[in-house]
Design a protein around this nucleic acid. Sequence first.
DNA 1: CGTGCAGTTGATAAAGATCAAACACGGTGG
DNA 2: CCACCGTGTTTGATCTTTATCAACTGCACG
Lengths: 250, 250
Amino acid sequence: MIAKVKPINQVACKDCILSTLCLPIALKVEDIDTLDSIIKRGKPLRKGEHLFFQGDTFSSIYAVRSGALKTYTTTDDGVEQITGFQLPSELVGLSGIDDEHYPVSAQAVETTMVCEIPFERLDELASTLPELRRKLMQIMSKEIREDQQMMLLLSKKNADERIATFLLNLAARFRRRGFSSQAFRLPMSRNEMGNYLGLAVETVSRVFTRFQKNGLIDANGKEVLIKDSMTICSLAGGKPVNQANDSLTG
Amino acid sequence: MIAKVKPINQVACKDCILSTLCLPIALKVEDIDTLDSIIKRGKPLRKGEHLFFQGDTFSSIYAVRSGALKTYTTTDDGVEQITGFQLPSELVGLSGIDDEHYPVSAQAVETTMVCEIPFERLDELASTLPELRRKLMQIMSKEIREDQQMMLLLSKKNADERIATFLLNLAARFRRRGFSSQAFRLPMSRNEMGNYLGLAVETVSRVFTRFQKNGLIDANGKEVLIKDSMTICSLAGGKPVNQANDSLTG
DNA sequence: CGTGCAGTTGATAAAGATCAAACACGGTGG
DNA sequence: CCACCGTGTTTGATCTTTATCAACTGCACG
C-alpha cells in the first residue's frame, strides 16, 4: 500500500489518470489546460471531515481525485438519508446549482482528495467550450438517470436485490477505474450502506452473511470478493432466474 | 369546464401563460422568439398515449403545456416504477441527454399537450444564450435535488408521511401555476400514486380514508381538499409534532 | 489490557403487502 | 331507460418482510 507516489493532489488535469473519466473528457488539449487553470486543489480531507454542509452557500462543484465521499440530506427532525457515494473522477455538488445553497452535506468516508471547480468560472468556460457544456449536461443527465434507478431500487426491490444491485454498481465503477471488479474494498460502513439502501444495519449484515453462506461472495469486513456474479446479476436485475432463489439465497 | 378557449397548442412562447415558469424564464424578448422558433407543437396526446418509450432514440425534450404526463422505467422482468409526474411548464426527457436512448417511457395520464424541443437545436441555442444555458442547468439541478428528496421519502418515510409529502408537493406545484393549493384534482390514479410512492394501492386507499376520517383532507375520488395543512405539513416534514400522531392519524 | 465502536446474531414486533371480496361509477348496448 | 360490464377503489383478514430491541463478538486503538 505504501509506495513512492508523486503528490497526486498537485497533478494537472492533463496528467491526471482520471482525465478520461472526469470532466476533461472530450476536451481538446489546449482546452484542458484552460479548465485546469480554474481548478483549485486543496489539502486532503480526513475520514469524517466535511467538504460542505447542507445549507452552505453554493459556489463550487468538486471532483473526487482519490478516496471517497458521501452526500446526505438531513430532514428537520434529524433523519439522514445518504444520497450517493462518489468515487474518484465523480462530481459532487451539482444539486446546488439551482439554489443559492447546497441541498446536501458532503463528507469524506475515507481520506479523500478533491479538485474544487468554482462554478462561476466553469459556467463562463462552458459558454466558449461547447464540448464542456455538453459534458456537463451529460453528467447531470446521468445523475438524474441513476437517481431514478435508485428510486426503483428503494421502491420495488427487496433486501437481497438491493445489496446485489449495490455490489454490482460498485464493481462496475471500480472496473472503469482500472481496478478489479471481482475483489475490492468497500469504502463505506455497513451502517452507511444500509442508510443509502433503505435497510437497517442488521439486515445488511444478514444479507452479507447469507450471500457468503450461499457462495455468492466472500466478505471479510470491508473486503469483498464476488464469486458468483451470474446469480448476483440476476438478483440485481430482478428475478429472471427464479428457480435459483431457494438454493442460492433462501 | 367547456369554454371557448383559443387553440392553446398553437400559442407562441411569448404569449404562453407558462412562460414565467417554463424554459423562457429569464430570457430576453427577442431570445424567447428564437427559442420559440425551434419548438414544434404536436397534436394532443390522449390519456394512455405515449410520448416516447424507454429505449427510443433520444432526440428531443418536451415541455408539458396542458394536462399531465408520467415517466416510468421498466426492469427486464417487467416491474414498473413511475419516476415522476409532469405538470404544465415542466420538462420531460432530460435523463436521455447522456445516452442515445431515453431511459424511461413517458405517457399521458390525462389528455395532454406538449411542446417538443429538439435537443440539438436547443444545445446550439444554449451556446449563444447564456441565460438559456444556465436555466437548463438549473432545471437539471433541481431535478436531481427532487429525485434525491424522493430517495429520502422512499427510504425513510412511512405511508402517512409519503402521502402527506406527495399532496403538499402537488399543492405547491398547483399554486405556482395559479390554481388553488387547497382544492385540486389529482391527475393520476391511486394505483399510479402507490407505484410512485412505493406503496400498494390498498395502502394508499387506507391512508386517504384515515386522513379523511381525521379531518386532514376531504377526498372524493380524484378531487382533494386540504383541510388541515398544518398537520399534513408536519407529517410531510418528519414528525416534529409527535404528540399529535395518535389523535390525528392513529 | 481495557474501552469502544462496528459488526453479527437471535427473538420479537410492526408496518405494510398480499389475498379476497365487495363496491362505485361511467360507459355500453339491449 | 335500465341492466350490465369492466375498471378503479375501498374494506377486511392474514401473512411476510424487515425493523427493532437486545445481547454478544471481535477488532482497533489508546
